[in-house]
Write a protein that binds this DNA or RNA. Structure first.
Lengths: 211, 211
DNA sequence: GTCTATATATTGATAGAC
DNA sequence: GTCTATCAATATATAGAC
């Protein structure tokens, strides 16, 4: 499991470095992700980000023209990351269940703190009203991609008889909702809380769950 | 379903009126709940709350001594509300599955916008670092009650053979995580998104799901 | 009771020093 | 390149007017 989710982490970081060539910009973004996730957009002060990145407050403005700008960029990257993860799973070798199993473990891996941070930021972008319009627009647009890649996997599993015959979109919504909820629980209570097995998480999807 | 969840709503409001006898204080709190849920603590300005409640900005300070104070009070009420809901389900007549079925419908009822607002505020209280210490303390303390009331239901269902034989605490964590995730999805996409049936939501819990 | 006006503090963003 | 100093804007909380 850890080997596989390292692959996903690496994939994330590789895409990140390609999208953001400049090292200083990356340094600010990486630190801003964590602060935004923990304090929210309005609760985050430029000083917090700067301090965490090891810069002075004013220096941040050499890289970004505003706090909103940093946030929008992160929402953009996070939305891409979610879509790419599912696409990666869709293109794997294996049965539909194996693909979703792998994806689930990658999403919920307790060592992928970064993944939970991305998700909390996407959560703000989709539930908060105190968010720049462009961030809302981006997240609405890019949220489609995970669904577009997950639904074919679900349909394939239904054809092979592995998965229940409910509406595929409903199952996809359910899947991402459950992932979201469990991811938040991970953030709240950390590593050592009783946590369901991946098989248990996915039992809503399977015709004959093995448990 | 709607009849039953009205009961839960009524229960919420009744407890609320008992806890907050003063009408003006309630008026501010009820409006603050919605604004805090949508904008977060830091993103909410006293002016927003005052405007929504139909007061001037300064007038709010006749009822509360600070913004943090309002937030802390709401966290306290929300945490109680969650615990009371599960307690109410535990004390119902019926099989364990019927109790959890009813609770799930009450939690996820698309007309209970208030319920989703409480949950978003509890989410802030448990994931954000930009939150008054007392709110954190209260939520940590009161989060135990829902578990204390849910676990006996689960164990009862396991004894009767309705539920799977996994660790009861793990099942409870899974249950609340799923509720949390689905509740957020409801907030994000509203009423008209494809949504799982309650039976589907609870299939992780049942030995022989009927679907 | 409720509002208006204001003092005080915080912070986002700029510009100039080193 | 990076920081310090500062301006301008916004918000909290208070206090006094009606």
């Amino acid at each position: 499991m850890s080997e596989q989710s390292e692959t996903l982490e690496k994939r994330f970081m590789k895409g990140f470095e390609e999208a953001i060539p400049d090292k200083g910009t990356r340094q600010i973004l990486l630190n801003a992700i964590e602060v935004f996730a923990k304090k929210g957009l309005a609760g985050t002060k430029i000083k917090d980000i700067a301090a965490k990145a090891g810069f002075s407050q004013g220096f941040v403005y050499n890289y970004f023209k505003s706090k909103d700008d940093i946030f929008i960029k992160i929402v953009d990257l996070a939305a891409d990351g979610a879509g790419n993860s599912v696409q990666y799973a869709a293109e794997m070798q294996g049965t539909p269940y194996e693909k979703i199993y792998w994806l689930t473990e990658a999403f919920l891996c307790p060592d992928s703190i970064a993944m939970q941070h991305w998700r909390l930021i996407m959560l703000q972008a989709t539930t908060s009203e105190a968010i720049p319009e462009e961030a809302v627009k981006i997240s609405k647009e890019k949220i489609k991609k995970p669904f577009e890649h997950l639904i074919p996997i679900i349909i394939e599993g239904q054809k092979s008889g592995e998965f229940v015959d409910a509406d595929a979109m409903t199952l996809a919504v359910t899947y991402f909702s459950i992932i979201q909820g469990l991811g938040i629980t991970r953030m709240q209570y950390g590593k050592n809380i009783p946590f369901p097995t991946t098989d248990m998480v996915l039992s809503f999807l399977r015709k004959n769950p093995s448990m």
